[in-house]
């Protein structure tokens, strides 16, 4: 691994939502780093705060959101302190994002070509005459057959997989340095899923782009990521190179997640669900370790503030009773 400063670095990041039914402590002390050209997987069960984190990085959080602490830097830019204008200039050009549900993620009454052109017009100096050509080129790059015709199509005329390709074309049109892909394959059938993942990987290789790949599918993450960061209830609980994580998960939650992932050879009854639920993030007295109530290894020591994560590329874990690194190996 290189020693250059990471492209994206998040330290001690916290965020909460003020809602009518109480304050949701959605993120707390989140550390995360993504290097140039690297693919980092962000995994965790539903509600662990993966999407909230990625929206906060782009500055497109919900109105009710408040950043409570920490910093997030992209290149030289402090994302948490940047002006809206600076953020707008970075979004779509330096950091791009694709979402799940490609069908609803595209404007239903605007031609897909026009939507790509909107992005190009915003971020490049391309002249009006070139816009169409470049939009078609962007569509061609994501292997959309007959891009000239598809340029004039509306989202409802395209299949889900085709819409996701359009989303990717739209996101990559300006050659961003970082792509955040929030469950880009959920809702697509398995073959399309593989094709979309391969496409993202290929584009990343071709342009040297870094990818933050959000998923709750550990197997998919294992296949495509250099490193994996595990989130639970708004905390990062473990971060490690993919191979190391699977060889010896150190956080009890990660270990259970890996056990819950159906491997090719495992049978259905080997599928262990993780006991308990995520804690209610609206509680004022959230325990220091939010996994505590679900953890078999918990002790009085777990009441102390969690240990800080070691910086990457080390195998970092936020737990007072981590599993032995060699044990599972």
């Amino acid at each position: 691994m290189n020693d250059a400063p990471p492209l994206l670095s998040v330290e001690g990041f916290g965020l909460e939502f003020r809602t009518r039914s109480g304050t949701v402590h959605a993120l707390d002390g989140v550390d995360l780093a993504v290097r140039k050209g690297e693919t980092v997987g962000l995994v965790g069960e539903s509600g662990s705060g993966k999407s909230v984190l990625s929206f906060a990085l782009l500055g497109i959080s919900d109105r009710a959101a408040r950043v409570t602490g920490g910093r997030a830097a992209f290149g030289g830019l402090e994302l948490t302190r940047a002006s809206e204008a600076d953020l707008e200039a970075v979004r779509g050009r330096e950091i791009a994002m694709i979402f799940q549900n490609p069908r609803t993620a595209l404007n239903p009454i605007r031609r897909v070509g026009a939507q790509i052109e909107d992005v190009l017009r915003r971020h490049t100096t391309a002249r009006a005459a070139e816009l169409r050509e470049r939009a078609i080129a962007a569509l061609r790059e994501v292997n959309i057959p007959d891009p000239e015709r598809r340029h004039a199509a509306y989202p409802f005329e395209l299949s889900g997989g085709m819409c996701q390709r359009v989303m990717i074309a739209l996101a990559l049109a300006c050659r961003p340095a970082l792509l955040i892909a929030d469950e880009p394959t959920t809702g697509l059938d398995v073959t399309t899923q593989a094709a979309i993942m391969d496409l993202i990987a290929a584009r990343a290789r071709a342009t040297g782009m870094a990818t933050l790949f959000i998923t709750h599918d550990l197997a998919l993450a294992a296949e495509h990521c250099d490193r994996i960061v595990v989130m639970h209830a708004g905390h990062v609980v473990e971060a490690a190179p993919t191979a190391a994580l699977f060889a010896g998960p150190r956080h009890p939650y990660t270990a259970q997640l890996i056990r819950a992932t159906p491997a090719a050879e495992s049978t259905i009854d080997a599928l262990a669900a993780i006991p308990g639920n995520l804690p209610d993030l609206r509680r004022a007295d959230l325990p220091a370790c939010r996994f505590r109530a679900r953890c078999a290894r918990a002790s009085a020591r777990c009441d102390a503030p969690l240990p800080r994560l070691a910086p990457p590329p080390a195998h970092a874990v936020a737990c007072w009773h981590p599993l032995d690194e060699a044990r599972c190996a």
């Binding site: 707008e88 779509g92 993620a105 992005v119 989303m167």
Partner: peptide, 15 residues
């Protein structure tokens, strides 16, 4: 969702 996409793509607020 598509408004979120448009904002994530950095389109200017009036657009």
């Amino acid at each position: 969702d598509f408004i979120r996409t448009a904002r994530a793509a950095g389109l200017a607020s009036p657009t």
